[in-house]
Design a protein around this nucleic acid. Sequence first.
DNA 1: CTGAAAGCGCTAACAC
DNA 2: GTGTTAGCGCTTTCAG
Lengths: 334, 334
Amino acid sequence: MAVTIKDLAKIAGVSYATVSRALNDHPEVSIETKEQIKKIARENGYSPNEIARGLVKKNTNTLGLLVPDISNPYFPEVAKGVEDRANREGYNIFLCNTGWNTEKEIQYIKTLRDKRVAGIIIAPAASDTYKKVKSLELDNPVVYIGSRSDDRSMSFVIIDNEKASSMATEYLIELGHTDIAFIGGNENSVANEERFNGYRNALKIHGLEREVHIVKGSSFNRESGFNLMSASIKEGRIPHAVVCANDIIALGVIEALESNFYNVPGDVSVVGFDDIAYASLPKINLTTVAQPKYDMGSMAADIVFRKIGARQSGAGNHIVLQPALIKRGTCRKR
Amino acid sequence: MAVTIKDLAKIAGVSYATVSRALNDHPEVSIETKEQIKKIARENGYSPNEIARGLVKKNTNTLGLLVPDISNPYFPEVAKGVEDRANREGYNIFLCNTGWNTEKEIQYIKTLRDKRVAGIIIAPAASDTYKKVKSLELDNPVVYIGSRSDDRSMSFVIIDNEKASSMATEYLIELGHTDIAFIGGNENSVANEERFNGYRNALKIHGLEREVHIVKGSSFNRESGFNLMSASIKEGRIPHAVVCANDIIALGVIEALESNFYNVPGDVSVVGFDDIAYASLPKINLTTVAQPKYDMGSMAADIVFRKIGARQSGAGNHIVLQPALIKRGTCRKR
DNA sequence: CTGAAAGCGCTAACAC
DNA sequence: GTGTTAGCGCTTTCAG
């Protein structure tokens, strides 16, 4: 099998401790033996067994990342941020696609814990993710991304979802719309709830409470947006505008609207959430709320590293980024 | 620190070997002590140290996946296929974003090797990835995805890129186009080369050799497609149609065309490659070549598992899937 | 059915 | 500078 440190020691005629030192560039070992040993290592295709090393150093140089749906362009961007930051530290990341399923989420977290990852970054699948994870009493630092729990002992990096959603809704109100619908994603998602609250509050503040036109959410995807909007149309409920819980839902909503010959933004205005890359395509030109996805990923990784360094699983780190409304072409004055 | 098997043994008043057996459901251990020990394990929040176990079992239940750009919606789909298949086997995957950079690729592969992953799935960054990887003389099974090397000892799962590209080009020819351009991605990518060859061969077969209108590629992304097409327009080279090396390039090409007031497909027909989710958006409606991304991912993982089982790093496994041309709205008769 | 002991590949005192 | 030795947390003979 693979050549070990002992094999090298035998060849070099030294103890294997010396080999270990040489390979790790310890200062005590003479420069010649160092060179010598490294040469032998190279010649014999030695590859250090990181898992053995990890066992003794109690350190795997590995992070876990849980995302609900890697097919949603929002998450690859986050993942890239996490990965780049982790890579700079010499860390690798385990990518876990949870499919919006907390069971799967917990199962993944358990294996990550067993694999002794240095930290776990979670884009939660649902609101009960938090307590489920908490009940695991992990030793590993955990940071949430995209949404938060009330429990301030937990760390997170988010944008202010509620405010963002309010901004979007108020923009629509300014444009003269009164019958504004909200089409949500997974109903047990915290981000979804916050975005809904932001929407509702904006209506309330502007005395439009009566107009609240909720289209119950189902999933954070295109099909769901399409189906929900189609159903609403079938019922004859055609709002002036719709606030969507994310961009891909918005894409589905627009699809439904246009396939029923309603023009966007001519007949109905639509605003999304996330600002995925495709939102800026001229043909799409979706008005939406931007999230600094990549930065959120790297910031989350940053917090993990800070926690690892500090050895204090203590206080929660909280980063709340400000959202920006990107006005493009799917909204129009009424 | 974390409770170990020895702690449990002490509590249970048995040897730690027995604890190990009980926890692993060995048949020899009495059902009562088994229950007993499991209970103690649960109560004390025991989590098996997979890295210690891995050291002795020489098995990490981990796969590595290298992709050039996780932001390209093609790759998350592949990743999902790999991940789902791996998950069924109880494996986790290391996601490595190589940024089309073979240096980074090799560096990643080295750490994956050091971390003793059971196998590595590579969506290669460039044509020299193959020999660079080969020179590493890995013990780990490797399977390539998306493009292949001539070296038949390597395993891969691909679609027939050349044929696919020919199909797309011939479709354009049937539509009456003669001045057909090819806008490529990374020039040192094998997939890019194969797709270019398919394009050129189709022209040749139809006696259109003289018309070959190559727009040198640069990157597999939207900006590149946009820039290349814009430059071509500026030079006054407006082809009848353009074959793009992938969908996101096509998106950029269309963007460039329309921002210069050329209508697609009215003035210029465009065909993409990959069939990413956004290609089917009514507003985009991109004619393209479909790749079974998810299946390709899971098949690649499948090969890895077969190799792990067989313990024969021997013969290369080759899967060549048939491409399908998806005719949508970006091409029109001339 | 269970215990004792060796060892996976490596690092880190502790000696000399 | 380098060797010896004791683990890291676990699985797996080998005894009994």
